[in-house]
Each structure stands twice: as structure tokens, then as C-alpha cells.
């Protein structure tokens, strides 16, 4: 049997991620680049880099799933699936006992319940506001003149936190400005921001419920302070993938692989 390779391309609002796997599910390459203004160019670029990294050619890829907000713009994809299903499958591949996935993405966050095969059973998403998302943290990091790594440094979770009451990103930014004007220590503001996101996530989690192990995906999973707060709030330990940003792309690659294999098994083929 010739080697078969599958790819997932996740064109998100902030980053475009690609994952390439072989027929056994082994990851050959993963790429994360900023999406910028042109999703389809970003997809081309990221896919090209992932192919180079895996030392493969485009013709060598059997099937490609596009996902994320820009999934419609990925001309070379052979199938499309929402990032919600992809995160479910991706998290299941990395942590097979996952029952609940919390994905904090660039412009939305979601809580997904999956079954023992990684298939989505139910999900909930934040409403239209960007509060509780990666974009929220990016805006705030900018305002606090911190980079995202600094914003994610582990904090003492028992430490003081400045109250950020607003549920709107723009208004929360005004709150941060006034806190800075009052010389509130930046650590307290950072802590307040993290708490604010955790509270938003918490309300989504309670609306859908927690089943099995909980896996956190999306770039915000890099934020150690936030992870600690979320674990404290949920009262459990989260599974954190090594590359939380590429879980959607990985899920997409596995969906492409599963679709190909079930087509082979189907009696009509």
C-alpha cells in the first residue's frame, strides 16, 4: 500500500494552522502562521510550509479538510468541516478520554461535548462579543504594553486581582485604562483579565456540563495563569496539548483520514 497522507487546514481569525498526518495518524508536520488580511493566501503559505517540513508534495496528500472561519476560502481542500467538530476530533486524538473540550480561539470560545469516538454531541459558543476570547487578551496585552508571553506568566492565584466587570472587550479596555490611571499594579490587572475570561468560560461550561476529561485547546491554552485559574474554578486538572493552536487542524486531518477510510470500506466503492 502506498503511503497515504492527510492534512487539516484551519484558517482562524488570528492564526492559520496546518497539520499533516500519515495513514496511521502519526503527525508529520504542524505549522502556525498569522492569518493576516487574506485567508486563502495564508492557507496556501501555511500548507506549503507544512509540506516542506514533512518533505512531501501537494500531490502526495490524499485528502485535505478545511476548517475555521476561512474554511470556504481554501480552494485546494477536498472537504470542509466546522472548527467545532475538528476540535472535538483533535482533542480526542491527543487525549482519548476527553469528554469535554474547551476551545478558546481568536474570535470565539466554545465548549464541546464529545463521545468516545471524538464525535460532537453538543456544543455552546460565546455570543457575538469578543470578551472571553484570544482577541480579548491580545487587545489587553497591547493596552498594557505586554507581549502575550508576559501576559501568560504564571501568577499566584491567591493574589490580588483588579475587578474587570465589563462583559464587552471595548468597555473592558476602558476599564483597564482607568485602572492604569489609578496606578493599579499591572499584575493585578492581568489577574483581573484572566478572571474575567475564566468567568465567561465557566458560564458556558455550566450551561453544557462537564463529561469525562477536559481538554483545553486554542492559543489561550498557552496562558499559564489563566489555565491555573480555570483549573481552580472547575476543580479539576485540564489536559493541555503540546501545540494547543493546531488541535483544530489536527482534527481536520483525522476527519479527512476517517472519511477516506470509510469510503474504502463502503460497499459502493
Amino acid at each position: 500500500m502506498a503511503d497515504l497522507y492527510f492534512a487539516g487546514v484551519d484558517v482562524g481569525s488570528l492564526s492559520t494552522d496546518v497539520s499533516i498526518i500519515d495513514h496511521s495518524g502519526k503527525v508529520l508536520s504542524e505549522i502556525v502562521i498569522p492569518t493576516g488580511v487574506n485567508g486563502s493566501e495564508a492557507a496556501e503559505e501555511a500548507f506549503g510550509s507544512a509540506l516542506n517540513l514533512a518533505d512531501l508534495t501537494r500531490e502526495g496528500i490524499t485528502a485535505i479538510t478545511a476548517t475555521g472561519y476561512g474554511r470556504a476560502s481554501v480552494a485546494f481542500a477536498t472537504g470542509k468541516t466546522t472548527e467545532i467538530s475538528c476540535h472535538g476530533v483533535g482533542a480526542h486524538q491527543l487525549f482519548p478520554r476527553t469528554g469535554t473540550v474547551i476551545d478558546i480561539g481568536g474570535q470565539d470560545s466554545k465548549v464541546i461535548q464529545i463521545d468516545s469516538h471524538g464525535r460532537m454531541l453538543d456544543f455552546t459558543m460565546n455570543d457575538k462579543c469578543a470578551a472571553g476570547t484570544g482577541r480579548f487578551l491580545e487587545v489587553m496585552a497591547n493596552r498594557l504594553e505586554l507581549d502575550l508571553d508576559e501576559l501568560s506568566s504564571p501568577l499566584n492565584i491567591k493574589g490580588e486581582s483588579a475587578p474587570i466587570s465589563s462583559t464587552c472587550t471595548v468597555f473592558a479596555e476602558s476599564e483597564v485604562i482607568s485602572l492604569l490611571a489609578k496606578n493599579t499594579p499591572r499584575e493585578e490587572i492581568v489577574h483581573g483579565l484572566q478572571r474575567s475570561i475564566v468567568n465567561r468560560i465557566w458560564s458556558m461550561v455550566t450551561s453544557i456540563g462537564v463529561e469525562g476529561e477536559v481538554t483545553l485547546t486554542g492559543g489561550v491554552a498557552h496562558n499559564k495563569g489563566l489555565v491555573a485559574l480555570l483549573e481552580e474554578k472547575l476543580g479539576l486538572t485540564l489536559n493541555i496539548p503540546e501545540n494547543p493552536q493546531t488541535v483544530g487542524a489536527l482534527g481536520g486531518a483525522h476527519i479527512a483520514r476517517r472519511a477516506y477510510q470509510s469510503n474504502l470500506e463502503s460497499p459502493t466503492n
Binding site: 472561519y69 466546522t82 454531541l121
Partner: peptide, 23 residues
């Protein structure tokens, strides 16, 4: 109305529905 957000939700809902009936 936020078209993109609604679209993703609806598509994900359809994926769940198709999975539940045929999965």
C-alpha cells in the same frame, strides 16, 4: 445578525445532527 457566527453554529449543528442519525 452576525452571518459568519450564525453560519458556523448552524453548520456545527448540522454535523451533530448528521452524526446522531447515522453515527
Amino acid at each position: 445578525w452576525s452571518e459568519q457566527q450564525i453560519h458556523t453554529r448552524l453548520e456545527a449543528f448540522c454535523e451533530t445532527l448528521e452524526g446522531s442519525k447515522h453515527g
